[in-house]
């Protein structure tokens, strides 16, 4: 197994700064926005974006937490039912421009599930998707509106996003899993 660091703490911080600006840019009224982080690391990324946007625009966006297990189409491909994490949307998202925040955009199935899940909380004015890493290999017609970094990958590679709040450091690794080597 080989691991390579593709984002250091410093580059990571710059990307979060850029995404914070990009998220706010299209809207006249920053107060019409809301952030929803996807369990688990997307939640930490959303918190970082919330803090940065507060810093730049002096407005603290409402922040929700979403677990999409119940809406997934693929949980029965595993042997055990996955443990469900907390969902908490502590604001009315009707008429809000909601930005979904996730660490890695891969097949697109998580974002699809998240859109379904959000609809059961009300009718947002719009939903946009923000991811730190887009690694390709989409299986659904879904793209992110805001992307931190495009990282073309092979299927046998794994993107490991680390967040300070959970892993002690902000960085991104590409891990090459064991393949048939000769």
């Amino acid at each position: 197994m080989q691991a390579a660091e593709i984002l250091t703490d410093e580059q990571y911080g710059k990307i979060i700064n850029r995404l914070a600006h990009q998220i706010v840019e299209p809207y006249d009224d920053v107060a019409s926005l809301a952030l929803v982080g996807m369990q688990r690391r997307g939640v930490f990324l959303a918190k970082m974006l919330q803090e940065r946007i507060h810093h730049f625009y002096n407005h603290k966006l409402p922040l929700g937490v979403l677990d999409v297990t119940f809406y997934r189409d693929d949980f029965r491909t595993k042997l055990k039912m996955p443990t469900v994490q907390v969902t908490e949307i502590p604001f009315d998202l009707t008429e809000k421009h909601v930005v979904l925040v996730d660490d890695v955009l891969y097949t697109g199935r998580t974002i699809r599930a998240a859109m379904d899940a959000l609809m059961s909380f009300g009718r947002p004015a719009s939903i946009k998707a923000c991811c730190l890493i887009d690694r390709g290999h989409r299986e659904l017609p879904i793209q992110a509106d805001y992307t931190g970094m495009f990282v073309p990958t092979y299927q046998n590679e794994e993107i490991q996003v680390e967040v300070a709040g959970l892993d002690g450091i902000n960085r991104v690794m590409v891990i090459q899993k064991e393949s048939a080597e000769t």
């Binding site: 677990d67 119940f70 379904d116 059961s120």
Partner: peptide, 14 residues
């Protein structure tokens, strides 16, 4: 987690 669902505006999951 399921108690939370029951308090949603649309208390239904697929």
């Amino acid at each position: 987690r399921f108690l939370e669902i029951l308090n949603r505006p649309v208390p239904k999951i697929p």
